[in-house]
Design a protein around this nucleic acid. Sequence first.
DNA 1: CCCTGATTCGC
DNA 2: GCGAATCAGG
Length: 172
Amino acid sequence: MNWTDERVETLRKLWAEGLSASQIAAQLGGVSRNAVIGKVHRLKLSSRGRATAAPARQKKVANGAASVKPVATRSTTTTRTVTSIGATALQTQFDAEPVARHYIRPVEDVVVPISRHLQLVELNERTCKWPNGDPLSEDFHFCGNDAAETGPYCKYHAKIAFQPAAERRRSR
DNA sequence: CCCTGATTCGC
DNA sequence: GCGAATCAGG
């Protein structure tokens, strides 16, 4: 997956909108959040409000000479299971403004739909049951993305549902 | 544990 | 230029 002008444009836009790197990565599809962050830096459009301060980084020395071997300070297992690409997205809580407005591109390799348009009867044990729209309206539907057996919602909606105060701050 | 962005560095 | 690995913090 390469950074086409279009994708870069989307990146810029979403980043400006305040979406997190992982969410942008999910939107673009085919890239990890690290890729997004890396790109953001290269484009020199880092700062955006406040996230994490930028203290003078000064660790991580993978040199080949004068290695010191720190005697494994990392005792709590190093297993990290990289699961960057969550196949879901959440637009509802962001006022459906960031992405819902300009909408998706050609969509070809995307594995990340905004929401499947499922009706109540179409839900099963593994579909996200996050509701979208007005229950009284006809276009009311559910997210429907994979929810695994960890709960009634997909990864993102689970966060929104069970942890509102965390970072809801900017929901305009 | 989950997440966030920041940085480094091999490719 | 790219992005995984890593770090530091919430």
